[in-house]
Nucleic acid binder design. Sequence first.
DNA 1: GCAATGACGCTCT
DNA 2: CAGAGCGCCATTG
Length: 129
Amino acid sequence: MADGQVTALYRRIYRVIRRIPRGKVATYGQVAELAGIPGGARVAAAALRVSTPAMGLPWQRVVGKRSPRSARISILDPVGAAIQRGLLEQEGVRLSEAGAISLADFGWLPTQRSGKKRAARPKARRSRH
DNA sequence: GCAATGACGCTCT
DNA sequence: CAGAGCGCCATTG
């Protein structure tokens, strides 16, 4: 019964993915953890696998974590991978020749705000230099 | 209910 | 630095 009937867990995953801002990327593991599934990177991948265009998910922003500081497209189908790369570059994400994505530059740092009270951010108001 | 699967991730060679 | 191996977790057959 996977026809239009997506598991509640998957829906949580989709919800996290929708929060990824344009020009940034998140890893499968990161998405899974934010969805409440520590170590469930493959589950996040499965959720995307069964997703449909109608869901309007920014699927291209979810990538595989290759090293602590670098990520890369993990789609098997070379065509789909090329499409993803194009979409990412289109929104400002730079990929090296080898397809490496710098997490330091484009990795999404989720600003906690899911129901819990967010910590006050007494950031000094410094505008011009 | 058990066995297989995968758009993963980390470690060891 | 590239490749092989093993562990993870929920969905599917």
